[in-house]
């Protein structure tokens, strides 16, 4: 069964997927107050500015939470798999999802490195793998 492909042309989030296809991890931020805006919006609710744009992350994060999915829901995702919530090191207000096969041993705060999963249709999805400490 085909994966659940993301809609990549959304006017608020399309750039995230476009960048991923270029091998870049980006997040939205306010140019006026520098607050990261995630999930992304064109308007900053912190300072009311419309001057917002995309910034590139260095692709390093910290593991915030995870769950091992043991009960399969969708044929595209055979159980067991592990969903991870990763907090960007250079923008802690941004947390992104990732998926690991199986049930690897993990610990809170673990260092994670982004990689880009190529999807069936040429789109890409930022994913995360455990990384060694610097």
């Amino acid at each position: 069964m085909a994966a659940l492909l993301p809609y990549t042309a959304d006017r608020e989030t399309g750039r995230f997927f476009e960048a991923a296809a270029e091998g870049k991890l980006v997040f939205r931020a306010c140019n006026a107050c520098n607050h990261a805006l995630h999930p992304p919006t064109a308007h900053c609710p912190y300072c009311q500015s419309w001057d917002t744009g995309w910034r590139e992350s260095n692709g390093v994060g910290r593991l915030h939470a995870w769950t091992v999915v043991a009960h399969q829901i969708h044929p595209a995702f055979p159980a067991p798999y592990t969903l991870v919530v990763v907090e960007l090191e250079d923008a802690p207000e941004v947390r992104l999802m990732g998926r690991l096969d199986g049930a690897p041993a993990l610990h809170p705060g673990q260092r994670m490195q982004v990689w880009f999963e190529k999807l069936d249709d040429g789109a890409a999805l930022p994913q995360w793998r455990p990384a060694s400490e610097p």
Binding site: A3, L4, L5, P6, Y7, T8, A9, D10, E12, T13, F16, F17, P39, V69, H74, A76, F77, Y81, L83, L96, M97, G98, R99, L119, L125
Partner: peptide
Amino acid sequence: GFGRYDEYYLPYG
């Protein structure tokens, strides 16, 4: 898409 923001979550499972 279209304001749901599920594209950040569903494709991961």
